[in-house]
Design a protein around this nucleic acid. Structure first.
Lengths: 159, 159
DNA sequence: AGAAAACTGTTTCCTTGTAAACAAAATTCT
DNA sequence: AGAATTTTGTTTACAAGGAAACAGTTTTCT
C-alpha cells in the first residue's frame, strides 16, 4: 500500500505528498468545509453570525411550526445538540415552542417577531457570502459542483 | 429575502423547504462530510479507526521527518490540536519526535516500526472505504466531483 | 551586537458536538 | 384492553476542536 510514484499528485501542499488521500471524498469534504468556514467568518465574523445557528432559524422561517427533530434530521444536527440550540434560541426570545395536541411527544418550533426580524436582517448577507464562496470556480464549474454534491447528499432530487 | 416559489427545490428533506440553503457550498460541504463520516464508521467503526488520526499517520508514512506544523497546515488541523494528537501517538508508541539541529523550534515526526505496521495494516481498508464512498455517483461524476473539490480546496494543482 | 519581529509548538480555558441512558407519549401486536 | 416496541425530546458525562496567551528559537533591522 506504499505508493510507487509520488510524482502523480501535483499539489499545493507545501511539498507534502498526500498520495490517494488527496482523492478521498472524506478528506476533500473536510478541507472544503474548513475552507468555506474560514471565508464565512472573514466576511461575517463581525456580525457574530454562525452558519449552523442561522441555518436553523432560516429553516424555521421557511417552515413555520416544523418539528424540532425534523429540523435536526434535515440539517444533520444530532437531536441532543438540537435541544441545546433550541433552548438558547428560546432564551434569546427568537423562537417559541408549542406542543401539538395530536402528538404530545413532538415540539413545534416557530420564530417570534424578533426571530423573523433577525432572519430578515441577516439573510441577504448570509446568502451573498454563500454565493461568493463559488468565486474560486467558473460559474459552470460551481453549478456542477453544487449539482454533484446535492446528488451525493441526496438533497437534489434525482438529478 | 423570503422566497416566493417553494416549488423550485424538489428534495429529499422530508418535506422541509431549505430554499437557497440547499445550494450553498457551506451547507453541502457539511452535510457531505457528515454523510461520508457515517459511511466510514459503518464500515470501519469496529477497527477503532478514525479518519483524522489515520490521515496524520498516513502523511508521516509518505513523508518521514516532516515538521509537525506542516502536517497540521496541510490537513487543516489547528496546531494546538496537533500537539494533542502528537502526544497521544507518541504515548502509544506510533511516532517519534526529533528536534533538528538547524532549527530547534521545529519538531520532526517519524513513524516507529509499530507506527509503520499500523499504517500498513489499515491502509488497504481505509482507502477501499474511501473509494466505495463514490458509489452514489457514476464513475464520471465521481471523478468530476473530486476534480472540482480539489480545485476548490486548491489541492489539485491548476486543474 | 542588540532590540524588535516572526515563527513554532505548548498550555489553559472554552465552545461545539456526541454517546448513552432516560422519561413521556404514541403505536403495534396480540 | 394491555404489554411490548417505537418515537421524540432531554439530561448527563465526555470527546473533539479552537482561541488566546505564553515560552523558546530564529530572523530581521538598525
Amino acid at each position: 500500500m506504499t505508493r510507487e510514484k509520488p510524482v502523480a499528485v501535483p499539489d499545493e501542499t507545501g511539498g507534502i505528498d498526500l498520495g490517494p488521500l488527496a482523492d478521498s471524498l472524506g478528506f476533500l469534504f473536510r478541507v472544503g468545509q474548513v475552507e468555506v468556514f474560514e471565508m464565512f467568518f472573514e466576511q461575517l465574523g463581525k456580525l457574530g453570525l454562525k452558519p449552523g445557528e442561522f441555518s436553523v432559524l432560516w429553516v424555521l422561517h421557511l417552515n413555520p411550526r416544523v418539528r424540532q427533530g425534523a429540523v435536526a434530521d434535515t440539517l444533520r444536527i444530532k437531536r441532543a445538540h438540537m435541544t441545546k440550540l433550541v433552548r438558547t434560541f428560546e432564551e434569546e426570545g427568537l423562537i417559541t415552542r408549542a406542543i401539538p395536541d395530536d402528538d404530545r411527544r413532538g415540539i413545534e418550533l416557530s420564530l417570534t417577531a424578533a426571530g423573523n426580524a433577525f432572519v430578515q436582517d441577516h439573510a441577504e448577507a448570509f446568502f451573498a457570502t454563500a454565493r461568493s464562496e463559488t468565486d474560486r470556480l467558473s460559474p459552470d464549474e460551481a453549478q456542477e459542483l453544487i449539482r454533484l454534491m446535492q446528488k451525493f447528499t441526496r438533497l437534489g432530487g434525482e438529478t
